[in-house]
Each structure stands twice: as structure tokens, then as C-alpha cells.
Amino acid sequence: MVEFLNTEGASYKLNQLIKNADHEIILISPFLKINQKIKDLIENQDRKRTTDIKIIYGKNELQPDENNWIKQLVSVRLAFCKDLHAKCYLSEKEAIITSMNLYEYSQVNNYEMGIYASKDDDPSLYQEVYNEAMDIFRISDELKITIEKVESKADKKVEPKVEPKQKHVSAKMNDNKTKTETGFCVRCQDQIKLDPMYPYCKKCFTSWNKYKNEEYKEKYCHICGKPTESSKIKPICYNCYKKHKNDFNFPL
């Protein structure tokens, strides 16, 4: 059952959503200016190292404080969506669609409205909201944050520098082996970012998304790119799974 939220209700439900999440949080808001209470809740989740936190924003107004804060979080994935106007907040079991932004002024001074849905009470509605949120994340540019300190005569300023995250680079594993961040679309074999949770290129994902059959048989392994019987829910071959089962998150 959908629940109507006023300003106070939206603020309370958002805090509870972040606090009670078990393994996934998605925060979609045009303005990346987060109030201290929500920052504290996100930091608590980040310390667990078990929660995937995605933050999507749409206005290029990152302040130094926000950059420094995000930089020290391990579990946060930041993405920029140029035409974003939606405000939507999800965990793996709850969803809020609202007019309220993440900064304190909205939650204290504005008159906001929204709706709340839980996966248990309305799984169909929750899934629609979740799918749309993930579509927005997939078409967004995932970013990494670096900080440049610039000194002036008057004082020291911190200027944020936002760079697109490189899609085809190498990263070192703990055992000094090298793994690549280049993967393959399980349907067309085009090179894409390596992420077993999202094993399609944009074109093939659009096609798959029409029916959303996670067991639909695909043609290639997402990690090695070799022909194999794969699917959205099992995107890699058995050999790659044995080799990388501790390196990535997998659908199953």
C-alpha cells in the first residue's frame, strides 16, 4: 500500500530507509548538498562495508566539503546525470518518491510531498521504481573525486576536480595479480565496464529491459568475453566464476 508523506514524514522515512538498509542504497537528487544527519547515517552504512551506496546528482555545483566527504567513503559510487530532475530514494526494501532534496533547508523550511512504498506491501510498484532508478544510474556518468588545493594570497582554497571514471584501466588485486576493469556485453560481446551486476551495453540493456527476463539465455561471458551460455542472473562462465568469485558482486 502506498503511503502519502508530508515534509516531516518524508524526512523521517528517508532517515529510516538509510538506517535500516541491509545491502543497497540509491539516492537520486539533482543537488549534491547533503545534510549532516544523512551524512552520519551514510557513514554508518559505509563502515559496514556491506552496503552498496549509489548517489546520482544532476547539478555541477560540488562544494569542497562535499568532495572531501565523498572521497573518504569506501562504499559510495557517485554518478552525474545532466538532465536529472527527479528526487527518489531507495533501499533494497523501500522506496520514496518526493519533491524533497537532501539538504537541510528543504527538510526544515519547505513544504514537501511524497509517496512511500515498501517491497513487501507493493512489490510491483517497488520494482518499477527500482528499475527506473537503475536505468538512471546506468545512463549516468560515474565519477571519481579528486581534490586540488589551490593557495591564493588571501587564503587557501580547495577546488574540487571531478573527472570521469576511466572505464578501461587495470587494478591490482591483493595477491599482486592484475584484473582488468574491461568487461563484455553478454549479448553482443562489445566491450563495457566490468560489473557482473550490469553485464549489458546500453543498447542491449534497452532490448533486455522490455521483458526483464533475468534467465534469458545470452551468448558470452561478461569477464572473459568467450562464447558461453550466460544470462542476466548468471553473466559469467564457470571458469571465470571460480577465478573471480571473491573479487566482484554477483547477482547470485
Rank of each mutant, 00 (worst) to 15 (best):
D195M: 04
D122F: 06
S124N: 14
S140R: 01
K149V: 12
D247R: 04
A117G: 06
I56E: 00
Y130F: 15
I139E: 09
E215A: 12
F80H: 09
S170Y: 09
L32F: 09
I233A: 03
H168K: 13
K172E: 09
N60I: 03
M197H: 05
K234F: 11
L84H: 06
K232R: 14
S207A: 12
I26Y: 00
D195G: 05
N109F: 15
A154T: 12
K234A: 06
C188G: 03
K48G: 02
Q107S: 15
E229Q: 13
P227V: 10
A133P: 04
S124A: 15
N131R: 13
S231Q: 07
W69A: 02
Y238P: 02
G114N: 06
D135W: 08
K71A: 12
I97G: 02
L252R: 12
P164T: 07
N6F: 05
L17D: 00
Y211V: 15
I56L: 08
C188F: 04
S170Q: 11
L17W: 00
N101C: 12
K202P: 02
S29E: 01
E215S: 14
K161V: 14
F137L: 11
E112G: 06
K54I: 09
S170R: 10
N35W: 04
H168M: 06
Y220E: 04
S231H: 06
D65N: 12
E8T: 10
I55A: 03
L84C: 01
V169S: 14
P30N: 07
Q72M: 11
Y103W: 10
L194V: 03
P196R: 04
D135A: 08
F205E: 04
A10F: 00
C185R: 05
L62R: 09
S11N: 13
I139F: 03
K93N: 15
E43S: 14
K165G: 02
